[in-house]
Amino acid sequence: MLLIDPAKKISFQRCISDGDLVIVYERHDTMKAVKVCEGSMLQNRFGVFKHSEWIGKTFGSKVFSNKGGFVYLLAPTPELWTLVLSHRTQILYVADISFVVMYLEIVPGCLVLESGTGSGSLTTSLARAVAPTGHVYTFDFHEQRAASAREDFERTGLSSLVTVGVRDIQGEGFPVEFSGLADSVFLDLPQPWLAIPSTGKMLKKDGIICSFSPCIEQVQRSSEALRLNFTDIRTFEVLLRTYEVREAKMDCCEGDEGASLGSLPLKRRQRSSEGSNGQEISTSPTVMAKPSGEARGHTGYLTFARLKCLS
């Protein structure tokens, strides 16, 4: 569980306690959120892990099962929480989230409004960005989704930084009590252009809005609505490409320059032999790099704009 200490600084630099939320890391693509309970056990393919043996250890510890298998107990950071949370809606991932936090210029102490809480993936990162003195007010029109998100923020220790409201922002706009107080606003709505007039009233002078939309037609209509009171309108599509880097053995002939394209040959060679044409063939461990087959494609378009300063 994320801890806010007396100095109001977020910290995981402490020992795991009964009732804490930890991310159990089995491998890079297998993680789960587990609430630590004194008398409980976790059972997986690596064996049985007693929660009582986790208490008192620091986040990042390697713990062993009755069979000698092991897992790591990691802190529920926003990055890891995004990978294990329950998907009540489509969520934003790290590439889009990091871009949003930077372009919205969110720093500690900011007041941020969000519409479209959904699964709370972005909200978690927004809360960390505004801590320790800022606050995120997030709204969802679906009461059950809002309640589930509220429970998640309690579990991750963010309830003092996030307030979840139930409201149809497209139809009603943001609550008037936030007029002129918001540093930035994030919209994840099917018809964001309906909420843009209200957003303009909520922002401070020079405040920034971001709208996330999966379809370019939504971007076009939103941009038309933004031109009335906003400037510096920009739209981005964040495409993340990951690479697999590993060592492999590769047969190549002496003087064959093309054999090493796309690879980083190591200095040592294990063995060599004569090829059928008399050339020496060497088998050497080589570092190979190739794009991952699981690379994530299009998620959505991010449209940013800055409120005009009318003197």
Rank of each mutant, 00 (worst) to 15 (best):
R269Q: 15
R14N: 06
N44C: 06
G173C: 14
W81Q: 13
T303C: 10
I209T: 01
S65H: 02
I281T: 07
A127M: 07
L307H: 01
T124G: 05
I233H: 02
V245G: 07
N66W: 00
W54A: 03
A95S: 08
N44S: 03
P265H: 08
T138K: 09
Q220A: 14
R45H: 12
S17A: 10
A289T: 13
K267H: 11
S198F: 10
V112P: 04
A127R: 06
Q144V: 14
L194P: 05
T242V: 06
L42G: 03
H142K: 12
Q144Y: 10
I196C: 06
L122I: 11
C215K: 07
V36I: 03
E217W: 13
F59H: 05
T123M: 01
S65R: 02
V130K: 04
D168P: 08
L73D: 06
F153G: 01
S213T: 11
R269E: 13
L80C: 09
L239W: 01
K9P: 03
S125R: 02
V130C: 08
K9W: 04
I4L: 14
D183A: 02
D152H: 07
I106A: 06
L122P: 01
K57G: 07
W81V: 15
V166D: 11
S40Y: 03
S272A: 14
I16E: 01
A149E: 01
D96Q: 02
E114M: 10
L189E: 09
P78N: 07
D18P: 03
V287K: 12
G69V: 10
R221I: 12
L239C: 04
L42E: 05
A129H: 00
P265Q: 11
L104V: 02
S198D: 10
L83K: 14
R145H: 12
T117S: 11
G116K: 06
G171F: 12
G255D: 13
S260K: 12
